[in-house]
Computed example of a mutant assay.
Amino acid sequence: MDQRRAAVGGRVLVPTAIAVLTVTCAAAIYRAATAGDVASVAFVAVSYGALLLLLRFLRAYELAPPDAAAERERLRRRVWALCTLLTALFAWKVAGVVPWPAAVLVWAAAAATSAGGFFALSPRRV
């Protein structure tokens, strides 16, 4: 029963969340474009595209059969790359509005997060 309820919730919740994300990103792009802020338009557009790709690859990973090791490894690498891209994009935005000592900490945290994600998503070879 719980799995069926989760499946029904996923069929409603995920498309609703993506629709809300799309509307808010479109509004942010519109506001930035009317202000002439090309960097913000690019930031929102790239972040939105990367997030949609991340969701797609995570779903493909969930649905991949356990015996498809090569496919799962390829998807794992894509997920890590997109997570690293999103981490770098948000670190760039945050580092741009804080004093330089805090910016150094933001970039260090972003690097540590990406490195940790690499090791967490890497297959264990024993």
Rank of each mutant, 00 (worst) to 15 (best):
T87W: 11
S47A: 15
R5E: 15
F119L: 15
V38K: 13
A88H: 06
A108G: 02
A28F: 14
R76S: 13
T87K: 04
A32Q: 06
R31F: 15
V8N: 12
Y30A: 14
R5T: 14
C25S: 10
A115F: 05
I18A: 08
A69R: 14
L54E: 02
A102L: 15
P99A: 15
E73N: 04
L52C: 03
A102D: 00
R31M: 09
A19D: 01
L82D: 04
T22E: 09
K93M: 10
W100E: 02
A109Y: 11
T16C: 03
V46H: 02
T16Q: 06
Y61D: 08
V20W: 12
T84L: 10
L82T: 03
Y48S: 08
R72T: 12
Y48D: 14
R77I: 00
A6N: 13
F119Y: 14
C25W: 09
L52W: 07
V98T: 10
V98N: 11
Y48W: 14
G9W: 02
F90H: 06
T87M: 09
A111D: 01
V8M: 12
V79I: 15
P15A: 01
A35Q: 12
V98Y: 10
A91R: 02
V126G: 14
A112Q: 07
A6Y: 01
E71K: 13
S47W: 09
L58G: 03
L52D: 04
V79N: 05
C25H: 11
P123T: 03
L105M: 12
A108T: 07
A95S: 15
V14D: 07
V94H: 06
F57M: 07
L63P: 01
F90L: 12
A26R: 05
A19V: 13
L13N: 03
R56N: 04
P99D: 15
R56E: 07
L82W: 03
A103N: 06
G49R: 12
F43S: 01
L58P: 03
D67P: 00
R76G: 03
R78E: 08
A50L: 13
V8F: 00
T16D: 01
T84I: 00
V38N: 06
L121A: 11
L58Y: 11
E73C: 03
R124K: 12
R125E: 13
R31H: 15
F57N: 08
A32N: 07
S114A: 15
T84S: 15
S114K: 02
G9V: 05
A17T: 13
A102T: 07
A68L: 13
A115Q: 10
E62A: 12
A35L: 12
A32P: 13
G10Q: 08
L58D: 00
A32G: 09
A68C: 09
V14M: 10
A81T: 09
T24R: 10
R74D: 02
F57Q: 05
F90Q: 12
R31P: 01
A7T: 08
S47I: 02
L82R: 05
R74A: 12
F90K: 01
T87C: 12
V14W: 03
T24E: 00
V94Q: 14
E62D: 15
M1E: 10
V106H: 08
L51W: 04
S47K: 00
V38T: 10
R31C: 06
A60G: 02
L75A: 04
A120D: 04
A26Y: 00
V44P: 02
Y48H: 07
G116H: 04
R56P: 00
R125I: 10
